[in-house]
Structures are given as C-alpha cells and as structure tokens.
Simulated scan of single mutants.
Amino acid sequence: MSGPSPARIGGIGLIGVAVVAAVIGLVSLGTGGSDEGADATAAPPTESVAPATPATSNPNEVPLPSFAPTPAAAPTTTPAAVAPPVAAAVPDAGSVAPTMPLRIYNNSTISGLAATAAADFQRGGWTVSDTTNYPDGIIPTSTVYYRPGTAEQASAQRLADEFGLRVEPRFQGIQDASPGLIVIVTRDFKGA
C-alpha cells in the first residue's frame, strides 16, 4: 500500500470544507450575518457602560442596560443550533456505508481478486455477502452498481469515493439481482 487513495483524500477534503462552511454559517447566524449586525451588537455594550454609571443614582436605569447585553441569549440558542447540524452531518456520512451489503464479482484473469477486494471492503467497515466471478461480459473498469431510485445510490457513491471505483446504475444483466450493491472488480482495482 502506498498510502491513502486520491479519492479518500478528496473525500476527507470535502468533509473538511463542509465543516468549515457549517462553522462560518453558524457564526454568521450568531452575529446577524453581516458587519452591520456585529456593529449593532457591539453598540449596546458601549451604551450599557455609559448608563451603568448613572445607574447607581437611578435604579430604573440599571435593568435596561443589564437587559441590553442579554441578547446574548440569542447566541445561547445558536449553540443549540450549532450542535444538530454538525452532529447530523457526521452520523449521516458514517451510517451510509455499513448498511448496504456488497456482492463482489471478479471480471479479470487475476485469481482471487474478488476475495482480495472483499477483504479491503470489510476492513473499511462494509459487509460483504458474496464473492464470485463475473463471466458474462467484459467490464472496462472496476465499478459499483446500484438500483436506481433506492438508497443504494448514496452508498454506491460513498464506496466509490473510498476505493476509487466508477459508479453506475445496474445494467440489464444484473438488474434483477437481489438488493444490495454489486461491485465488479477488474485488473485496475487498487484496493484500500
């Protein structure tokens, strides 16, 4: 093994970009989304400092400035909003892969390639239900096949990203096979 595949590195990079974008979005929600909102938020504390001095002379002025900074309660609700999007993004990404069983077919002259690929997929957390040969035609490159209109497509894309595979809807020869992803590996399969 020569290290992480370019697809895996790209996937990790995309996840990083998504996390940064989520943080920026949440920060902009908490600050009002613009510099004007930040100036407006900064103005009440400055005003609250000035009335705080006369507050000792008039008790009616004390609650008003002390409530002006209380719009910090909005950021208190914002962290609650921060947690769900970040927490929701991580489980969705992780829960996709292990739920789809894989059937691995060897479409090369390399003996045991399906078993080798199955071991790689299992190390990646995927469930493999079958390994065999695919003798019914020549597949040009290692490909993961899914049933269109099902949750299999998202899992197929994730598997392809992790292992550098092509993603395609099932073709006529495997359309009626039982549910789950079908991976046909060829001599170009690199593994994890």
Rank of each mutant, 00 (worst) to 15 (best):
S2Y: 03
P4W: 03
P6Q: 12
P6C: 06
R8Y: 04
I9T: 06
I9G: 04
G10L: 09
G10R: 14
I12C: 00
G13W: 07
L14A: 12
L14T: 15
I15W: 04
V19D: 01
V20G: 08
V20Y: 04
A21S: 05
A21L: 11
V27L: 09
G30P: 00
T31Y: 00
T31I: 03
G32L: 04
A38F: 02
A38T: 08
A40S: 13
A40H: 10
A40E: 15
A40R: 15
A42H: 05
P44M: 15
T46S: 12
E47W: 12
S48E: 14
A50M: 07
A50H: 07
P54M: 08
N58D: 14
N58T: 10
N60P: 03
N60E: 11
N60Y: 13
N60V: 11
P63R: 11
P63V: 12
L64D: 07
L64T: 13
P65I: 13
P65Q: 12
S66W: 07
F67T: 11
P71V: 15
A72R: 12
A73T: 13
P75V: 15
T76N: 12
T77C: 10
P79I: 12
A80D: 06
V82E: 01
A83K: 03
A83Q: 06
V86M: 12
V86R: 10
V90W: 13
P91V: 14
P91Q: 13
D92V: 09
G94A: 10
G94Y: 10
G94F: 13
S95I: 10
S95D: 14
V96D: 07
V96S: 06
A97H: 08
T99K: 15
P101M: 12
R103M: 06
I104G: 03
N106W: 02
N107S: 02
S108T: 08
T109I: 09
S111I: 06
S111M: 04
G112F: 00
L113I: 08
L113N: 00
A114V: 05
A114H: 00
A114L: 02
T116E: 11
T116A: 15
A118G: 14
A118Y: 07
A119H: 15
A119K: 13
D120C: 10
G124A: 14
G124W: 00
G125I: 09
G125L: 09
G125Q: 09
T127E: 06
T127M: 06
D130M: 08
D130T: 08
T132G: 04
T132P: 00
Y134D: 01
I138T: 14
P140R: 07
V144E: 01
Y145D: 01
Y145P: 01
Y146N: 02
R147G: 01
P148G: 06
T150I: 03
A151K: 05
A151I: 05
A154G: 00
A156G: 12
R158W: 09
R158F: 14
L159F: 10
D161G: 15
D161I: 01
D161W: 09
E162D: 15
G164M: 04
G164I: 02
L165T: 07
R166Q: 08
V167S: 12
R170I: 05
Q172Y: 00
G173R: 10
I174V: 10
P179V: 06
P179C: 05
P179N: 02
P179S: 03
L181Y: 04
I184T: 02
R187K: 10
A192I: 13
